[in-house]
Amino acid sequence: MGIKKKLGLGIASAALGLSLVGGGTFAYFSDTEASTNTFAAGTLDLGLDPVEIFNVDNLKPGDKMHREFELQNNGSLDIASVLLDTSYTVTDAQGDNAGEDFGEHIVVKFIKNEGHPEHIFDNDEYTVVYQKTLAELSNMTPDNLAVELEDFLVWDYEQDGIPVGGVDYLDVVIEFVDNGQDQNIFQGDSLELTWEFTGEQEEGEWR
C-alpha cells in the first residue's frame, strides 16, 4: 500500500474517533421541571334525621300519623336527587289473613311542604300531593317513583337537590285506612317498614 493510501486511512480513522468522542461529550443548556398531580374523589353522604320515622302501636282503622324528617347532605359533593325504595314485612298474629296484605290497607300520603322547617302543618288542613299504598310503593322501582314524584312534589322553594351542608325536609302522613268493611283479620298484626333513601350525584362537569 502506498503512503498516500495509508495516510488517507489514518486521517479517516482519526476523523471517526473524533466524531465518536464529540458525540458523547457535546454540551448544551437544559432545564427540567416536574409536575406533581393529585386527583381526589369527593364523597356522597346522605343523612336521615330521625332514622326511625315511625314507631306506633295499638293502631286501629282510621288512624293517621304525621311525620316530618330531614334529608341531610353530609358529604363533599352536591346531591342532585334522592331515590326512595320501599319494602315491608307483615307478621300475621292470628294466622288468618288468608292472603290479605296488611300493606294494602296502609296508605302513604306525601304532603306539600315549603322545603324548610318553618312549614306549618295542620292536622285538619294539609295538601296531599301524592299518595300510594305501601303495597303499591313496594312494587315500584325507585326510578319510576322518582319520575312520578317529580310531577307532583313541586315545592314553593327554589333549592335544586341538596347542596353540600344543606338539608331538605319531607312531610308524610301514613293512614290505616278504614274501608268500612270487616278488617278484624288484621287485629294484632304488625308491619315492619323499611325506607331506603339513595342520594345521587350531579352530572360530571369540566374542571
Rank of each mutant, 00 (worst) to 15 (best):
Q159T: 14
K109F: 12
L153A: 11
G103C: 04
L134G: 04
V154F: 10
H105S: 06
E114L: 04
Q131Y: 14
L149W: 10
T141R: 09
E104F: 06
D143N: 00
K132A: 14
K132Y: 01
E114H: 02
N144G: 08
K132G: 02
N139W: 02
V154H: 06
E148N: 09
Y157I: 01
G161K: 00
H119D: 12
F110L: 11
G103S: 06
F121R: 06
E104I: 01
H119Y: 04
L145M: 10
D143W: 02
W155R: 13
N123I: 15
D143A: 06
H119N: 14
E104P: 12
L137A: 00
K132F: 00
I106T: 11
F121M: 07
S138V: 07
L153M: 15
D124L: 12
Y126V: 02
D124V: 00
T127F: 08
F152Q: 15
E158H: 00
W155S: 03
N144P: 11
Y130A: 10
Q131E: 15
E118Q: 13
D124E: 09
S138D: 00
V147N: 04
H119M: 09
V108K: 11
A146Q: 13
N144V: 11
L149Y: 05
H116D: 15
A146T: 03
G161S: 13
E125V: 12
D151L: 12
D143R: 09
E118G: 13
Q131T: 02
N144D: 12
L134H: 00
D160C: 09
D160H: 10
G161I: 01
A135Y: 07
E136S: 11
Q159Y: 07
E150R: 14
E104A: 13
T127M: 15
G161N: 05
T141P: 01
I106A: 11
D124Y: 07
I120G: 03
K112E: 09
E148R: 03
I120E: 14
I106R: 04
F121E: 09
M140S: 12
